[in-house]
Design a binder for these strands. Structure first.
Lengths: 200, 200
DNA sequence: ACGCAACATTGCACGGTCTGCAAGAAGGTG
DNA sequence: CACCTTCTTGCAGACCGTGCAATGTTGCGT
């Protein structure tokens, strides 16, 4: 951990901007909150806002680009003998546990805000999409197939995203009383079984 | 077909704006093209642009909201005995055939532009996401499960989106020489088999 | 053919987003 | 303390997107 005063301050400012944006939007709605409002609450100038986030929406979501690295790193750390499906599932379970355990429950608030403002959903999907591209590479090396020829890696990456998004959505629907890792597990059970029609 | 002069004109203007936006962006890039440019090429005032599309990005993609209806309508038209998986697969095959057969090859151009400007990908996913929500309902009625309780409908809808997006991506990668319906088929084959690891 | 009602187009004004630039403040280093 | 690097800030400006009111066009009944 490089913990100079500078880095700590930057991190603090970034978090302050994110929390300010998230809370203000949760309270007043997306369009009722301007960048100036967010900057004011975070105690920086409006111009500084854009040194940390390229758009207002990004500040509301406050997603860390490092998450993508952590995802692929986690995948690379799985034993080589594991099937791609099992490895990806295990990584997502860790990820889900981490999200559910986050202090101050930022994820519930984030998901509620996204639910209320579908515009943000686009940006969220875009972020997931960036992770997906990285995943495609990681899966391809694991299966030893070439991305250009084989359709398996991109499909599996896309499906993994679908599993996580579905679990997050159900988590929200349960008012965050359900266990997120369990929901992820259930999704992968269905996927591994070939999505058989359920019994009513 | 209600074909009053008024409706035909509106449709023509909408298409003109879409094609203008798509071609200009394909040629000069997304940020180099302003709404004024698009309106000028389409022969309308800048203000009129916003009577047809809420944002510049939407004009570039030019997606028809009616596509979603067609999707769910197609699903409802499938025989009731069919499994959700099979029904969805069949509907997507029709959809894929229609997209590949579109005159003037708008889809290839659209996909190339989206590839070059990932920002648009976000909006595209969002549109697919809107279709997904409608799909969730349609699947739920078909399987007779309640959306709040069962995780199957949202998962299947999300996975369907993943299948289509993967197929489109591979189509683009093949420079549109591959058969889009065939790519869709392959994706569903893998899904129905539970995503087994491929043989290298 | 005429005139009226509905609707589409347009210009104008305005608030908000986001960027480039240059001056100044604060952290880091010898 | 002197110096360099990095972060912050204000300012100017292009572009986006919306509400409103004026103007033009279409459709329809008479």
């Amino acid at each position: 951990m490089t913990s100079g005063l500078r880095e700590r301050k930057k991190h603090a400012t970034r978090l302050a901007l994110h929390e300010a944006a998230l809370q203000l939007v949760a309270e007043h709605g997306l369009e009722a909150v301007s960048v100036d409002d967010v900057a004011a609450r975070a105690g920086v100038s409006p111009r500084t806002f854009f040194n940390y986030f390229p758009t207002k929406d990004d500040a509301v979501l406050g997603l860390d680009p490092a998450d993508t690295e952590r995802l692929t790193a986690g995948l690379a750390a799985r034993p080589a003998g594991e099937s791609p499906l099992a490895a990806l599932r295990a990584v997502q379970l860790e990820q889900a546990a981490a999200m559910a355990a986050e202090p101050e429950g930022l994820w519930p608030l984030r998901l509620r805000v996204v639910e209320a403002h579908p515009v943000l959903l686009a940006r969220l999907h875009a972020t997931f999409g960036r992770s997906e591209r990285a995943l495609v590479e990681a899966i391809a090396t694991r299966t030893g197939t070439r991305v250009d020829v084989d359709g398996y890696p991109p499909l599996l990456a896309a499906v993994a995203g679908a599993a996580m998004r579905t679990a997050l959505h159900r988590w929200l629907r349960s008012d965050f009383t359900a266990s997120l890792p369990r929901l992820v597990d259930e999704a992968w059970d269905l996927l591994a079984a070939g999505l058989p029609a359920p019994r009513p």
